[in-house]
């Protein structure tokens, strides 16, 4: 068992190393680090040359790769091209903000999906079931960015009509941040719209999945046995059926996380939230390759770690792998 874990970790590290190469050479191949700067007439030729020397841009690509790796390990990804700011502090802050957003959005989605999916499965063919089915289809068909804009329009119109600032449409916190409870309320007001926008497709996906799972389970023999034993329908649904239907949901969530993360790029841009999505967008717009590569590394690491954890958990659960 331990051997399996160690094996897996080593394999992941190897893939990570391969990823660094792919990222570095891939991005370098298609992007000129100095592209934007060369077009900027404010920068003199000597400044440019100094930059080239400092970043070793005259050296062969492989050497640059070496320097980049060194920067990654020691100097925390070094500095960006345009303003020579250190990359890591901003990137790590962005990471925390996005994790906050994604975790909250997914928790919200799962909660909603359990509610919807379980009820729809229990009361199959009811109005509720049909209604939520149509809802999920719409959820699959809505462009997230459009939905986010609509939410903003509604919020703004609400404010214009009532004068009450129920939610905010941009930023992470207000400028004059209140203390204590007020801070959390304020943060919630800022986060609620992005969370709703981000979770729409997740809710649609998870609720359909749970509904299908519930339907399968609810007609199975062991649930029938539970009912025959005289347990109330509620206990049967919640305790027996749900538990078995819910575990495979973890797989679906894992797979969906990648898409959700991609969605943050759009949502954060629209709601001006300082997270990984916005960071990526800015780095790409300025064609600054060092922040880009750093971002890709962080993202790839997260994806690999997630993969690793799921593999290990499955290895623990699946008796076939236990020799």
């Amino acid at each position: 068992m331990l051997r399996l874990i160690v094996n897996r970790v080593f394999f992941s590290l190897f893939v990570l190393l391969a990823a660094t190469a792919v990222i570095f050479f891939g991005v370098s191949a298609i992007g000129d680090p100095l592209g934007e700067l060369r077009n900027d007439s404010n920068i003199s030729a000597e400044s440019l040359q100094r930059l080239i020397d400092r970043k070793h841009l005259d050296d062969p690509l492989v050497v640059q790769y070496g320097y980049w790796l060194k920067d990654m390990a020691t100097a925390q990804f070094g500095t960006d091209m345009k303003f020579d700011r250190p990359i890591w502090p901003e990137l790590s802050r962005a990471l925390l903000n996005t994790v906050q957003l994604v975790v909250l959005a997914e928790l919200f989605a799962i909660a909603m999906a359990i509610g919807i999916g379980v009820l729809a499965g229990r009361f199959q063919y009811s109005i509720f079931d049909y209604g939520t089915t149509i809802g999920s289809f719409i959820g699959y068909s809505i462009p997230i960015f459009w939905f986010a804009l609509i939410l903003q329009i509604v919020a703004v119109n609400f404010y214009q009509v009532t004068g009450i600032r129920a939610v905010y449409i941009s930023g992470l916190s207000s400028v004059d941040v209140p203390q204590g409870w007020g801070f959390y309320v304020d943060r919630a007001q800022h986060l609620i719209l992005p969370i709703i926008a981000l979770s729409v497709t997740s809710i649609a996906t998870y609720s359909r999945y749970l509904r299908a799972s519930m339907l399968e389970v609810i007609n199975s023999d062991y649930v029938r046995t539970a009912r025959a034993k005289g347990l109330s329908e509620r206990v049967v649904t919640l305790r027996h059926a749900l538990r078995n239907a819910a575990l495979p949901l973890a797989t679906v969530v894992g797979v969906n996380l990648g898409t959700v993360f991609g969605g943050t790029i759009i949502i954060e841009t629209i709601f001006s939230m300082p997270g990984m999505g916005l960071y990526f967008f800015n780095a790409l717009t300025t064609r600054d390759i060092y922040p880009l590569m750093a971002w890709l590394m962080v993202t790839a690491t997260m994806a690999l770690t997630l993969n690793l954890i799921t593999d290990i958990v499955y290895g623990l659960l699946d008796p076939r792998l236990r020799a």
Binding site: A19, G258, L284, R287, L292, T299, A300, A303
Partner: peptide, 17 residues
């Protein structure tokens, strides 16, 4: 192909290519 975030890759490709 799946391991790196799709939307980001697409954007990068379109930005540079």
């Amino acid at each position: 192909v799946i391991i790196l975030p799709g939307l980001a890759l697409l954007m990068i490709m379109i930005a540079f290519l």
